[in-house]
């Protein structure tokens, strides 16, 4: 490995889980408070970028497991899927639909097409940024 990166290694390993959790938090609270898919995707991308600083391009690719372009495509598919319930019930495209799943402990898991759309944005942003970063790595060789 490159000259001493002990401190960066430890830092990346300690900070990355926090960043990933924060990104999921931002994604999920996006419907009725500030936050949402875009900023959540940015934070997730920053976690992976920090990882790339510490461990290099190959390790980041391995960590992602899929090619970032596939993430981007999956995000777009999620966005498309969020339009289907409205179309099936004969309303205007992208009309929001809500379902509530009862859970033990007297609480509900709120699912909605808005959330599906937000997950799509999240994946698309993450995929785009990681495509940039990995593309730049390949240019530099």
């Amino acid at each position: 490995m490159k000259s001493n990166t002990v401190i960066l290694h430890t830092a990346a390993l300690a900070i990355m889980p926090l960043q990933l959790m924060f990104s999921v938090f931002l994604l999920l609270r996006g419907h009725d408070e500030p936050g949402g898919g875009f900023i959540g995707g940015l934070v997730a991308a920053s976690a992976f970028v920090l990882y790339a600083f510490a461990f290099g391009a190959e390790a980041t690719r391995k960590l992602l497991r899929v090619h970032p372009k596939d993430l981007l495509a999956a995000g777009l598919l999620f966005g498309l899927a969020s339009t289907i319930p409205a179309l099936l019930s004969g309303q205007a495209m992208l009309t929001a639909h809500w379902w509530e799943l009862p859970l033990p402990g007297d609480s509900y898991l709120k699912l909605s097409t808005v959330l599906v759309f937000d997950i799509g944005v999240y994946l698309a942003v993450l995929g785009t940024l990681m495509t940039f970063v990995i593309g730049l790595m390949e240019v530099e060789g």
Binding site: F25, L28, L103, G105, S107, L109
Partner: peptide
């Protein structure tokens, strides 16, 4: 533990997630 704090109190949904 941190997730329980972030999601404003313990509930079924926050434990699952």
């Amino acid at each position: 533990v941190m997730w329980q704090f972030l999601s404003d109190g313990i509930s079924g949904g926050s434990i699952v997630l």
